[in-house]
């Protein structure tokens, strides 16, 4: 048995396991994060994760950092060359 944020130790004493944290980069958009407990901002502030999936701003322009607020759509896509 595993639980988000939990330190469950199975009754048989085997090492605790939990769901892997999964991240997916959205092209020219945020990082979608599943299974994380918190996101630490650049200034060290800890932001608890309160929804099943969160979108972490990767463009640096969000007004609700560290979360994406859709502003990336108005930022010119980075050159890939």
């Amino acid at each position: 048995m595993t639980r988000r944020g939990g330190e469950d130790v199975p009754v048989d004493g085997s090492p605790a396991r939990r769901e892997p944290v999964r991240a997916r980069l959205c092209p020219d958009g945020p990082l979608l994060l599943r299974g994380a407990d918190e996101v630490v901002a650049a200034d060290g502030t800890v932001h608890p994760v309160t929804r099943p999936v969160v979108a972490v701003c990767a463009c640096g322009r969000s007004g609700r950092a560290p979360w994406c607020d859709g502003t990336h759509a108005y930022v010119k896509p980075r050159r890939t060359s």
């Binding site: 979108a55 979360w67 994406c68």
Partner: peptide, 14 residues
């Protein structure tokens, strides 16, 4: 909904 739908947009599309 600014925050939630920024997530939902990515989830629903892909």
């Amino acid at each position: 909904h600014v925050e939630a739908d920024a997530v939902h947009e990515q989830v629903v599309l892909t």
